[in-house]
């Protein structure tokens, strides 16, 4: 977490106290919004660890090994997924393409799941920027599941609490790479600290055209893609070319 973020946090705590004291939530929310914009960080302040992932979709062969490795690593129950790979098929024969889009939690810089969590169970770790769910605190209200613009979260049917990818904290805190990265057949997944200019991920993000998903939602995702096909079934309405998305999840529709 950067110094700027820390300022925001203290300010937030302060605002929370105001609310607790006076219950003037709207005024407080407005003040919070205004004051957090007033901070302009300089480059030296930005240095704080943020783990990130870069997925080079040109190297992905859509084999689902990452998803299987993730399932095995966490005993993720049937029917729900921390990691999944979408297929985007486009065009009419003979002009066709099929692209793969591996998906997971984006560990956003501005995670809305954290903003809406009423218990504080979901939070962004200061030490490495990983967004986690404290399964001992979570009440399973599903608000975060609604708020995530990437459908990265689900209610774990076994524990009854919110669950999602945690960047394999238990591995990365010991210096290993996440399970999905470790197992990726094509070497498509690069993991590292994006705030460190010497890291491989920083170098690759700097030297390649990269995109993130739904940039317009303001979440600032920390999972970057090279060569991702952002085509979506909404485009079928135009009637120019066909797009078919297969999510390989219980929910057939992508969001």
């Amino acid at each position: 977490m950067t110094k700027e973020d820390k300022h925001e946090t203290t300010r937030r705590n302060f605002v929370q106290k105001i609310i607790a004291g006076a219950g003037v939530s709207t005024v407080a929310a407005a003040t919070y919004g205004l004051s957090s914009k007033a901070t302009t960080p300089d480059a030296s302040e930005r240095r704080a660890k943020q783990y990130a992932m870069l997925i080079d979709t040109r190297k992905c062969i859509g084999c689902h090994t990452c998803s299987v490795a993730c399932k095995a690593e966490f005993d993720v129950p049937l029917g729900v997924t921390r990691s999944w790979v979408e297929y985007t098929e486009k065009g009419t024969y003979p002009n066709v393409s099929r692209n793969f889009l591996p998906r997971l939690c984006n560990h956003c810089r501005h995670p809305q799941c954290v903003d809406v969590c009423p218990t504080g169970a979901t939070y962004k770790r200061e030490q490495d920027g990983i967004v986690v769910v404290d399964s001992g605190q979570c009440i399973g209200c599903k608000y975060c599941i609604q708020a995530c613009p990437y459908d990265a979260r689900f209610l774990n049917p076994v524990t009854g609490v919110a669950d999602k990818c945690d960047f394999c904290i238990h591995r990365v805190s010991k210096g290993l790479v996440p399970s999905c990265v470790n197992s990726c057949i094509g070497g498509a997944r690069i993991f590292g600290d994006i705030s460190d200019p010497t890291s491989e991920i920083s170098r690759l993000v700097e030297t390649n055209p990269v995109t993130v998903l739904r940039p317009g939602k303001g979440t600032e995702p920390q999972v970057y893609y090279i060569g991702a096909d952002h085509s979506d079934e909404h485009e079928n309405k135009r009637g120019w070319y066909d797009v078919r998305v297969t999510t390989h999840r219980k929910e057939k529709g992508r969001r």
Binding site: P118, T119, G120, I139, G140, Y143
Partner: peptide
């Protein structure tokens, strides 16, 4: 309807800017 109904009181351990927290 909560995933963990018996933890509902966790809502009252703190108050934050989540509309659900303030609403509760």
């Amino acid at each position: 309807e909560l995933g963990q109904p018996f933890r509902a009181l966790n809502l009252f351990h703190l108050i934050n800017l989540s509309p659900m927290s303030i609403g509760s």
